[in-house]
């Protein structure tokens, strides 16, 4: 019963922070709200007994959202939202798309017969060992591909962002 309550609490927090991301006109508050949503998702992972993923999510998102906040301040004319600039368009269509997608996904969640639900999971130590073996054995190729992908994307991002000297 307790995990269900925690999942509901963290889930409600994630949804509330998620809504706040697009409600405030301050970019810094948006980034911090997204950090809150991602931290709440990390809390849900912990409540679902995926401790490694929960801690990883908290650490990764804290860093990523802080960087996002810095970029916001760098790029925005009005990062504090004091000028109350409107930075949205096609609100009605976007809202309709969001509601339809949510309803479809909720319908799938409610209508599908998910079968037997597992009551217990392995302890954290066993989980970590099993995940390590999974990464180093069956999913080795996938893990290597993911590593190379992120390396290539970092190089590509730097190549795209670097300033070019005008031709003489």
């Amino acid at each position: 019963m307790m995990p269900t309550i925690f999942i509901a609490l963290f889930g409600a927090a994630a949804i509330w922070f998620g809504v706040r991301v697009f409600q405030t006109s301050s970019m810094v508050r948006s980034a911090l709200s997204l950090l809150g949503a991602m931290a709440a998702i990390g809390g849900m992972f912990l409540a679902m007994e995926a401790e490694f993923l929960g801690v990883l999510q908290l650490m990764m998102m804290a860093t990523e959202m802080s960087i996002m906040a810095i970029f916001m301040v760098m790029y925005m004319m009005d990062p504090g939202g004091l000028g109350q600039m409107d930075m949205s368009h096609q609100q009605r269509e976007a809202l309709a798309a969001g509601i339809v997608a949510t309803l479809l996904a909720v319908a799938v969640a409610l209508l599908v017969n998910w079968g037997t639900v597992a009551k217990e999971v392995d302890s954290t130590t066993v989980q970590l060992r099993a995940l390590g073996i999974e990464i180093m054995e069956r999913s080795m190729l996938l893990f290597e591909t993911v590593g190379v992908t992120i390396l290539v994307s970092m190089i590509a991002a730097i190549a795209v962002a670097v300033a070019r000297e005008p031709k003489r």
């Binding site: 509901a8 991301v21 697009f22 969001g98 997608a101 949510t102 996904a105 909720v106 969640a109």
Partner: peptide, 8 residues
């Protein structure tokens, strides 16, 4: 919860 977050 996942569905609502996806919609947002």
């Amino acid at each position: 919860i996942g569905a609502v977050l996806f919609g947002i």
